[in-house]
Design a protein around this nucleic acid. Structure first.
Length: 734
RNA sequence: GCCACCGUAGCUCAGUUGGCAGAGCAGCGGUUUUGUAAACCGCAGGUCGUCGGUUCGAAUCCGACCGGUGGCUCCA
């Protein structure tokens, strides 16, 4: 083995992942270290992950190491997420070059790697269509074929900014302005600076384009600069890349497979739920089979809650507007609620003007002028009937008109389809005087709420306009808060565990201090955040803190899972709330005989029944464990000769409390089993002349496994064990 | 809400240049009486999302609306 000689006075010490150390001359690169270790590693090395002075950063292969550091040499491997990040970042540059070659007027915006690929946002006058994708890929293939090196160069900030301004791309100027440091770095895809494609970029990149052995441009969609809908619309080109063709093929295959788990497809096939245009979009109709799954889940959770001292309550789906004015839901979140139902003619009329005014607000030009004139006309009619609205002049700007219209509705009576259950539960708490001896009061309800989600957001069961939360509100003293939060977090985790949902992420949603969407005092928020953070830490879970993700009344711990196409969904949630008790002036009488303010915990382990079942359908690909399964057992006859025995088997199974189906159709047993397996029925009892004679059943599962013959009693008892153990024990073992 | 694409039988889909609306599965009726991953024959099923326009003629071209899909934004 070659020994790296220390040249000059200075050298650096590199610690490798196995703990061994190497000395290298100052200025040595990852490539140098790799070469010193061995030629194989030198060939496959693409970058280095460097830990230095408490920071970890990926370095280009030929970038000098910063000093004594820990180094992991990244190789061209599709198994290493760090390597893939580097590759995909480079692939984004290659795609950008391809797009610029095809459409020279393209302005590049921003092109980061993603967990499973990359994208590049571009500003381009014409729209890139699906037909353009093959052309882009062909151009990319050319760049890859040319196997050009990625060459980094740096410039001091001032001349670099000047250079970017000269190029006339405002996005790059913006990006550079937000970049840290005194120098800006650029990457040229090739050796000819000034001639080859280059991009402002922090790096790192793979050494050569030829390493991108497999790539695919997946789709084009629309985005906005900095995510601001009022800013420049951009086109976002999504792609992915791998070091090996086989990995790409496997990835695409996996995507195909994942699509087959889609709850919208399986839900239809298995008759679990339906959405009817006649009812409305985002409104779920639970079909009998889906209802079974939901009922079982609710039964399970209800039992757990009763063990934990919850009380069950029922409350209506609508409430007086005043209730939501107090809670803060109305009118601040009016956009995402079904419109309020005003009772008086005046209220309805003003609401009509207001709705038009709100529509006009988003328009521009002649449309806006026209709309504003219409609003003024309606206003005159309203004022003619009910008198001048307070503080409203005839020439008021639209924004002021809207403000005065809201003000004019302040005391108008009416109802709101509830967007949350908490105000109702709060009224139950407030229905009588509470003593400290009563606390915690834990009120639970499978409460249906309605939110008018934007039309483009609605999706299957995961994002809907009417949904049922497995909601509960715990009212407790400040001293009890920590324990209540801890128990609740534990309950939520145990629910996910029971269902085998292990792959979730935990988010601590905090208030964004610069936003005005939160109610309550900073002190309340401080206390609530401290409590919720404490609960997260004590649970021992990994979590990330995310400002801006809190509820409007308090911080929360959310449990997020991914659906079959990789979208994140919030399921369970645990929230600490000092604010609503204050807004509703809730009290309890303490041991000191004085009134005190309780604290609230809002929590929903499933989140919503709709979303949870949607995710579960995908998790199990429709093949529910026995305890949840809509149809647990099918009795199928070999021929008509066994109809009578099959019927008695079916009756016995039903009487034993199992959900069963009887198939005496005149098909052969092969096709029957095929159909029943596709219906994801857990166990198929084949009954023929042999079984009739032996008073047994022939047990088969839906995966094609034959358990063999057993007595009906043995089968039923095995099913009971399987149901009770929530699937930990299976009929026929295994 | 914004952008792109899509909408044909209960489901999955075909339908050429604008010229008689089709298949498989499911359903119904019959034949077969069946032994473990799709038997056979037949029947029925449609205002081609809706409304308007262009045309001698529209599933097909154009517009609006409704709905869906993907993304953006949003998710109290």
């Amino acid at each position: 083995m070659e020994v790296v000689r220390t040249v000059g006075r200075q050298s650096l010490k590199v610690t490798l992942p196995d703990g061994s150390q190497r000395e290298a001359p100052s200025g040595a690169t990852t490539a140098d270290i790799a070469a010193a270790i061995g030629p194989g590693l030198a060939r496959s090395a693409i970058a280095g992950r460097v830990s230095f002075a408490g920071h970890t950063q990926v370095y280009d292969l030929d970038r000098p190491l910063p000093g004594d550091c820990a180094l992991k040499i990244l190789t061209a491997s599709d198994d290493d997420p760090d390597s893939l990040m580097v590759l995909r970042h480079s692939a984004a540059h290659v795609m950008a070059e391809a797009v610029c070659r095809l459409f020279p007027e393209t302005k590049l915006v921003y092109g980061p790697p993603l967990e499973d690929g990359f994208y590049y946002d571009i500003d381009l006058g014409r729209s890139v269509s699906a037909d353009d994708i093959p052309r882009i890929e062909a151009e990319m293939a050319r760049v890859v074929q040319e196997n050009r090196p990625f060459c980094r160069y740096e410039m001091p900030r001032v001349p670099a900014m000047e250079k970017l301004r000269d190029e006339g791309n405002r996005y790059k100027v913006d990006n550079a302005e937000r970049a840290e440091g005194d120098t800006l770095s650029f990457y040229v895809t090739g050796e000819n600076r000034g001639k080859d494609f280059e991009d402002l970029c922090r790096g790192p990149h793979i050494p050569r384009t030829g390493l991108i052995k497999a790539f695919k441009v997946r789709q084009v969609s629309r985005s906005h600069y900095r995510g601001d809908v009022n800013d420049q619309p951009l086109q976002r080109l999504y792609g992915t890349a791998f070091f090996k063709q086989a990995s790409l093929a496997a990835y695409l295959e996996q995507l195909e497979q994942a699509k087959k788990r889609d709850h919208r497809v399986i839900g239809k096939e298995l008759g679990l739920f339906a959405i009817s245009e006649a009812v409305g979009s985002g409104l779920i109709l639970w079909l009998p089979r889906g209802a079974v799954v939901r009922t079982q889940l609710q039964q399970y959770l209800t039992e757990e809650m009763l063990k934990l001292g919850y009380d069950l309550v029922y409350t209506p789906h609508v409430g007086q507007l005043g209730l939501y004015r107090t809670s803060g839901h109305y009118p601040y979140y009016e956009d995402s609620q079904y419109p309020a139902m005003f009772e008086t003619e005046r209220g309805k009329a003003i609401q009509g003007v207001l709705q038009l005014a709100l529509r006009v607000k988003d328009r521009a030009g002649a449309e806006r002028d026209q709309g504003l004139a219409a609003v003024r006309g309606m206003l005159r009619a309203v004022e003619g009937t009910w008198g001048t609205l307070e503080g409203l002049r005839g020439d008021a700007a639209l924004e002021q008109v809207i403000e005065r219209l809201y003000a004019a509705l302040t005391d108008e009576p009416g109802y709101l389809l509830r967007p949350m259950n908490c105000p109702h539960h709060i009224q139950i708490y407030a229905a009588r005087q509470r003593s400290y001896r009563d606390l915690p009061v834990r009120l639970a309800e499978y409460g249906t709420v309605y939110r008018f989600e934007q039309s483009g957001e609605i999706s299957g069961m995961t994002r809907v306009r009417g949904f049922t939360q497995d909601d509960a509100h715990l009212f407790c003293t400040t001293d009890q808060l920590a324990a209540e939060l801890a128990t609740t977090v534990k309950l939520t985790r145990s629910v996910l565990e029971t269902l085998g949902l292990h792959d979730y992420r935990v988010r601590l949603g905090l208030r964004d201090e610069s936003s005005n969407k939160y109610v309550g005092s900073p002190e309340n928020w401080k206390k609530a955040e401290a409590a919720i953070r404490q609960a997260a830490i004590e649970s021992g879970m990994q979590y990330t803190e995310e400002p801006g993700e809190a509820a409007f009344y308090g911080p929360k711990i959310d449990f997020l899972v991914k659906d079959c196409i990789g979208r994140n969904w919030q399921l369970g949630t645990v929230q600490a709330d000092y604010n609503l008790p204050e807004r509703f002036d809730l009290t309890y009488i303490g041991s000191d005989n004085a009134p005190h303010r309780p604290v609230m915990v809002h929590r929903a382990p499933f989140g919503s029944m709709e979303r949870f079942v949607g995710i579960l359908i995908e998790h199990f690909a429709g093949a529910f464990p026995l305890w949840l399964s809509p149809v647990q057992v099918a009795v199928a006859t070999v021929s008509e000769k066994s109809d009578e025995y099959a019927s008695s088997v079916y009756q016995t199974v039903k009487a034993a409390g199992l959900r069963a189906e009887l198939d005496t159709s005149s098909e052969k047993i092969g096709p029957k089993k095929h159909r029943l397996r596709n219906a994801k029925i857990n166990y198929i009892l084949v009954v023929g002349e042999q079984e009739t004679a032996g008073r047994s059943v022939n047990v088969n599962d839906r995966d094609g496994r034959s358990v063999g013959n057993m007595t009906l009693d043995a089968f039923i008892s095995a099913c009971r064990t399987e149901v009770e153990s929530k699937g930990r024990t299976r009929v026929g073992g295994a």
